[in-house]
Amino acid sequence: NQASVVANQLIPINTALALVMMRSEVVTPVGIPAEDIPRLVSMQVNRAVPLGTTLMPDMVKGYA
């Protein structure tokens, strides 16, 4: 199964993503693939992302 990017902490709106904020986990539904974690670093989220939430492409500015 494909691992997705999951929030490792609460990520406030407009926060630039850092490695420590993300982990990979096999979840349903599938979100952003875990292999894209390096690409996500320094991109901003466009909403608050609670701990344990799967990151979806529409949550990250400039990802989709």
Rank of each mutant, 00 (worst) to 15 (best):
A18N: 08
V41M: 07
N8T: 13
P57K: 10
L51Q: 15
M21I: 03
N46L: 12
M59L: 05
A3N: 08
Q2L: 14
S42L: 10
P12D: 08
D58S: 10
N46C: 08
I13K: 13
V20M: 15
D58H: 10
Q2A: 13
V27M: 06
Y63I: 04
R39V: 10
V26F: 08
M22L: 13
G31F: 03
V30L: 15
A64H: 12
A16K: 09
E35N: 11
V6M: 04
V20F: 15
T53I: 10
P33C: 06
G31W: 03
T54Q: 03
P57Q: 09
R47E: 15
E35L: 10
P29C: 04
M59F: 12
L55N: 02
G52S: 06
P12K: 08
T28K: 07
S24Q: 13
V5W: 03
A18S: 13
D36S: 14
A64S: 13
A64Y: 07
P33M: 08
V60Q: 00
A18E: 09
L17D: 02
M59N: 05
N14G: 11
T28M: 09
P29V: 06
Y63Q: 03
N1R: 04
Q44V: 10
G31R: 02
T54I: 09
T54L: 04
V41Q: 05
I11Q: 01
M22Q: 00
V6E: 01
M59S: 06
L40F: 02
V41C: 06
A34S: 14
G52P: 01
V6H: 02
Y63A: 03
E25Q: 10
Q9F: 07
I11P: 01
L40W: 02
M21R: 00
L10H: 15
V41L: 15
I37Q: 04
S4W: 03
Q44H: 12
S4Q: 01
G31S: 01
G62E: 09
P38I: 09
I37G: 05
P33E: 04
M43C: 06
I11M: 03
A64V: 13
L51Y: 14
Y63R: 03
R23Y: 05
L10Y: 14
T54S: 04
L51F: 15
A48M: 08
M22D: 00
V41E: 05
V45I: 06
S24Y: 08
P57R: 10
I32D: 00
G52D: 09
N8S: 13
L51D: 12
A64Q: 15
R47L: 06
L10N: 13
T53D: 13
I13H: 11
M43L: 13
P12F: 06
P38W: 11
P33H: 12
D58E: 13
L10E: 14
A34W: 07
T53M: 13
N1K: 07
V20L: 14
A7R: 02
P57D: 05
V30S: 13
S24L: 07
L55C: 03
M22S: 02
P33N: 12
K61T: 13
M56K: 08
T15G: 05
A34R: 05
N1I: 14
I37F: 03
T28C: 11
N46Y: 10
T28L: 09
P38L: 13
Q44C: 14
P33Q: 06
V5P: 01
A16W: 14
I37W: 03
S42D: 11
K61A: 11
N14W: 15
V49M: 05
A18H: 08
N1H: 11
T15L: 04
S42N: 11
M22Y: 02
V30A: 12
N46A: 11
V45M: 06
I37T: 07
V6Y: 03
L19M: 14
A16V: 13
N14I: 03
V45Q: 00
M56Q: 11
L51E: 15
A64W: 06
P38R: 08
M22N: 00
R39E: 05
N14M: 10
K61Y: 11
T53H: 14
E35W: 09
A7C: 04
P12Q: 12
Q2S: 13
T53S: 14
A16Q: 11
L51N: 10
M59T: 05
Q44A: 13
I32R: 00
M22E: 00
P33K: 07
V26K: 06
N46K: 12
A48K: 11
A48D: 11
A3R: 09
P57W: 11
P29Y: 03
E35Y: 10
I37S: 04
V5G: 01
N46M: 13
L17V: 02
R23F: 04
G31L: 02
M43K: 06
